[in-house]
């Protein structure tokens, strides 16, 4: 590729930079607002006016968030549920992905297509039957199991892992088979170590998705102690008033793990976008 800066290329680059800057600004403004808002003490919703910088920096919203609510419990719940679901998704999706990508068994393609087609059904459609099943049939209301069970493994994650596993050379599996490795041993000792980048992407996506999940935990949890951080934050909104300051403080605290996760694992996020696109 030529690195020579021709006038047309300069214009193109300039436009690209301006577009990206505007886009970045649009993306950052809500986060900035959240951050600034969390340091503005405004108990009353009416008085809450977003400003570029607060007149008085106050940690009162944080104080209210942590001390007047079960914030730590919510954070723990979110962490616990997200961690468990990340682990189960890693475990099941990688095994299913491996099977779909590399093993031969009757009906492999049909089963895979049936699974994939379930992705086309909107969550809202299955929500009520799922709710009835979990709450009424299994009697799991207000338990971790209720939050975790339906999300043990996502079809999207199976698909992601299948795509990744497909790029691994099959000859390694054959070599391991000849090297007297058991079928589970092949998966555990050969495939998983090679699939680390794919697993990292899956772990990040999975953790973020479940950390941010709001609707399902809201439906199946009732007591304050069982709420996740996202559900907990919503409880700040009342019919007559809303404590925006505390909400912003909570949102900031809730977003913090994601921000840290993103910046420390940026490489894998980008890799996740290209998985399946490039044979490696």
């Amino acid at each position: 590729m030529s690195s020579k800066l021709t006038p047309s290329r300069a214009i193109f680059l300039g436009l690209a930079v301006v577009t990206l800057l505007i886009w970045a600004l649009i993306t950052v403004i809500p986060l900035y607002w959240m951050f600034i808002g969390s340091f503005q003490d405004s108990m009353a919703s009416a008085s809450f006016q977003p400003q570029m910088l607060p007149d008085i920096w106050s940690t009162a919203p944080y104080d209210r968030f942590f001390n007047k609510t079960a914030a730590f419990r919510w954070l723990f719940n979110s962490l616990f549920v997200s961690a468990i679901l990340t682990l189960t998704n890693l475990f099941f999706a990688s095994m299913a992905g491996y099977a779909f990508a590399k093993l031969k068994f009757p009906g492999k393609n049909s089963i895979f297509w049936v699974l994939l087609s379930t992705m086309m059904i909107p969550t809202q459609v299955t929500l009520i039957p799922l709710y009835i099943l979990v709450i009424n049939t299994f009697n799991l209301a207000d338990t971790y199991t209720a939050i975790i069970l339906p999300a043990l493994v996502g079809v999207g994650n199976i698909f992601l892992m299948k795509q990744y596993m497909s790029t691994l050379p099959t000859s390694l599996i054959h070599a391991a088979r000849i090297d007297a490795c058991s079928e589970f041993g092949i998966f555990w000792k050969i495939i998983l170590p090679m699939a680390k980048p794919g697993l990292a992407v899956l772990a990040i996506f999975s953790f973020v998705a479940h950390w941010n999940d709001f609707f399902w935990p809201l439906l199946v949890t009732r007591s304050n102690d069982m709420r996740t951080i996202q559900v907990g934050l919503a409880s700040f909104k009342f019919a007559e008033s809303t404590d925006y300051g505390a909400i912003m403080a909570g949102a900031t605290v809730g977003a913090l793990p994601m921000v840290i996760l993103f910046f420390s694992l940026q490489k894998y996020f980008l890799q996740g976008i290209t998985i399946g696109a490039v044979k490696g």
């Binding site: 000859s171 390694l172 070599a175 391991a176 000849i178 050969i190 170590p193 090679m194």
Partner: peptide, 12 residues
């Protein structure tokens, strides 16, 4: 024992 075309060495 088999030697494969792409060597099939365990990369990790």
């Amino acid at each position: 024992a088999m030697v494969f075309q792409d060597y099939a060495l365990y990369p990790h």
